[in-house]
Write a protein that binds this DNA or RNA. Structure first.
Lengths: 236, 236
DNA sequence: TCAAAAGTGTTAGAGGTACACCCATGA
DNA sequence: TCATGGGTGTACCTCTAACACTTTTGA
């Protein structure tokens, strides 16, 4: 900061995104296969260099839109900085990693070298990208519990059982539709549209359709143990 | 990443820390007063330039130890990247911000331009440093609820009422000693040393002394709503 | 023996989970 | 009318807040 004349070795800042979506019943991440060395043929995260006129979030949004035709990410958030000096061979590259989410009803057009991979069965990844994906998954799992982040995985309108399978895929275990509905409703996140879905040919009661009230992330269950004293409380 | 020949404008990466400690009953942050422009006489966070051979966490630890003689930070964690193109005048500087915590019994020697300031009454800060401090405070407050991070605010051994005042200062509201003890004990974070503290001259029952069992941060209350089904559960 | 400070017992309430039961549809 | 899938009612359990009450000290 006040350093004056350091050798100033070249430094590049890149942004990377773990773009997650639930597809075909499992949580997947968008990866592209590197053609060139280093790490040719390994799979890596979309992203690229930070430009002079943008901050990291603008940068990752631009790069996702440009390179991968993902304009419809419903949520983007910073994960962490990855900065091990040798994380990438050659000149140093510091990376800001993001989690981003694509709702399940979208199927963005992808460049030929790009594919969705199950997070639980990723191919060999380039550099530290595998670790970034796992970090993104963990963040998503945690936030499904205490925020409304489900909106970013779900289509605009959905049945509770569809939502249940999204949550199950993301969390990695079966969630009960009964309780999912109850929890999200009690928190005031879900709103019934009034419509119902037509049952399949095997019958069954038509499922009510819901939507999320909010489409931006908010903490809905601030797990605050050691809460502030209640109004009447004297608060020793 | 695969960009080849960009104009490569100069880019500096700095690390900054909001060093927090509870002193004299309130949560404080370590700030130093800038002597030079830009933002002369404003208060700013300790930190500095990332070197070629270290990652961001090593860097902030080094700089705290070097510049501010704070070797005894009990906890350091990444907060976020601050990267607005104009966050600092002149050549671009991207910052990785950290939260770090100093236990209340330590009183590190400080350089003459450096002082502790109440987080709730900070002087005019340089650049975006005020926002970083608030972010650090919010992170600390959240983590006091669902992790064992209290160990990083407390001395090695303490009474429950001393711990209560630390939590109260950090959270900004009075916490009940009764419930604090109960919550932390149930979670298995506290251990009685068997010793007691001698009462003051006004009498009172001698207070039992406790210590935290762990001295590294762990999530102790994984606020997991939508938990995995219990063993017997069939998990529809 | 009284005031002060610490610690425990106990009740009440919030929020979730599990599960039984009821509802609406197609064949 | 039966199978199928959706939705509701309810009992139970865990955790926390609040607060009365007991314990142990100094004066």
């Amino acid at each position: 900061m006040t350093d004056a004349t350091t050798g100033t070795p070249p430094l590049v800042h890149e942004v990377l995104a773990a773009v997650l979506q639930v597809r075909q019943g499992s949580l997947r991440v968008l990866l592209w296969e590197r053609a060139l060395e280093p790490h040719a043929h390994r799979w890596s995260l979309p992203g690229g260099r930070l430009r002079a006129d943008e901050d990291v979030e603008a940068s990752i949004r631009r790069q996702l839109a440009e390179k991968v035709d993902v304009r419809q990410v419903a949520h983007v958030e910073q994960l962490a900085v990855f900065s091990a000096p040798d994380r990438v061979p050659g000149p140093r590259v510091v990376a800001t990693a993001f989690l981003s989410l694509v709702p399940s009803h979208l199927d963005p057009a992808l460049p030929p070298d790009t594919e969705w991979h199950e997070v639980s069965a990723m191919p060999e990844t380039a550099f530290d990208h595998g670790a970034i994906v796992l970090r993104a998954r963990n963040r998503l799992r945690a936030k499904l519990s205490y925020t409304n982040i489900g909106f970013a995985l779900a289509p605009p309108v959905f049945t509770v059982s569809a939502l249940r399978s999204l949550y199950s895929a993301a969390l990695g275990y079966r969630v009960s539709a009964t309780n999912l509905q109850r929890v999200l409703s009690r928190r005031g996140l879900l709103e019934p549209t009034g419509e119902t879905e037509r049952p399949g040919r095997s019958g069954g009661r038509p499922a009510a359709l819901f939507r999320f009230l909010e489409a931006t992330m908010a903490v809905t269950d601030p797990f605050a143990v050691l809460k502030p004293p209640s109004p009447r409380g004297t608060g020793t």
